[in-house]
Write a protein that binds this DNA or RNA. Structure first.
Lengths: 116, 116
DNA sequence: CTAATATATGAACAAATGCTCAGATAAAAA
DNA sequence: TTTTTATCTGAGCATTTGTTCATATATTAG
C-alpha cells in the first residue's frame, strides 16, 4: 500500500533546526529569488550585459536582441521595478543604463562558475 | 494609425554592434540563465542555503521547507542536473550536499545587494 | 522470498511567465 | 493643432514551471 509521502517525518531534527537558525528572514529569501528571477531569462541577461557597455535606447535593445520593441519594453519595466536599470529621457527617446554595479558582479561571478 | 512596432529600426547602430561584440556566445548566456533559473525559486534558494550548513537528506529538507518529499525530490533532480548539488547514499538514505562553493558565493553577493 | 522505508519518477493540472496585438501616451515636427 | 516618432501598457494566449498524486525503484529487515 504505497503512500504519497514517506512515513518518515524528520530523520535528523538537529540538522533541520540548524538550517532553520542559519536561514535569513523570509522577506530576504523572497527578494533573493526575485533578483535571481530577473536574471533567469536569456533576453534579460543579454540586455543587462549589453548595458554594461553603455546606455542604449529601446530600439537599440530590440535590434540587438532581435525581438519586438514591445517585448523589450515589458522586460525593461520588470528590471526597472527591481531597480536593476534606470533611464533618462532625451526628447522622445529613453536611454536605459544599469542602476548600479551589483548586477555586473553577479553575472561575472556566474560566468566564472559555468566556465570552470 | 498606430503600428504595433516602432518604425525606427536602429537608432544607434554603433551601440548595437558594440554590445554584440562584447556578448559571450549564446551557449554561455544560455547556461547563465539556466544557472540563475535554478536560484529563481524560494524553495530552491532555501534548500541551497540550508545545505551550506552541511549535508541533509530528502526528509530533512522536506521538513525544513514544509513541503512534500516528492516536491523536494523533483527540485533536487533539477539541481543535480545542473551539478549544483551532489549526493551520497547511506543505506536507503540519500544525503545531499552542495557540489561546490560557487553557489554560496553567488547567494552571498546577491544578499549583499538586496541588503544595501 | 515478502514487507517496509526512503527516494525517484511520470502524468496531470493550476499558476506564473513571456510574447503578441491593439491601442494609449509623451514629445517633437509640421 | 494635427501628425509622426518612440515608448508604454493591458488583455489575451501559448509555453513553462512547480506542485500533487499514483506508482516505480532501491535498500534493508524479517
Amino acid at each position: 500500500m504505497p503512500t504519497d509521502q514517506c512515513l518518515c517525518r524528520i530523520i535528523h531534527q538537529d540538522r533541520v533546526e540548524r538550517a532553520s537558525q542559519a536561514m535569513p528572514p523570509n522577506r530576504e529569501t523572497d527578494r533573493l529569488s526575485l533578483l535571481f528571477k530577473a536574471l533567469a531569462d536569456q533576453s534579460r541577461i543579454k540586455m543587462l550585459m549589453a548595458l554594461e557597455q553603455g546606455e542604449m535606447c529601446v530600439c537599440d535593445l530590440a535590434a540587438f536582441l532581435g525581438v519586438s520593441e514591445s517585448a523589450v519594453s515589458h522586460q525593461l519595466r520588470m528590471l526597472r521595478q527591481l531597480t536593476l536599470v534606470a533611464n533618462r529621457r532625451e526628447g522622445p527617446v529613453l536611454y536605459y543604463r544599469l542602476a548600479d554595479a551589483h548586477v555586473s558582479q553577479l553575472v561575472r561571478l556566474a560566468l566564472e562558475h559555468i566556465r570552470e
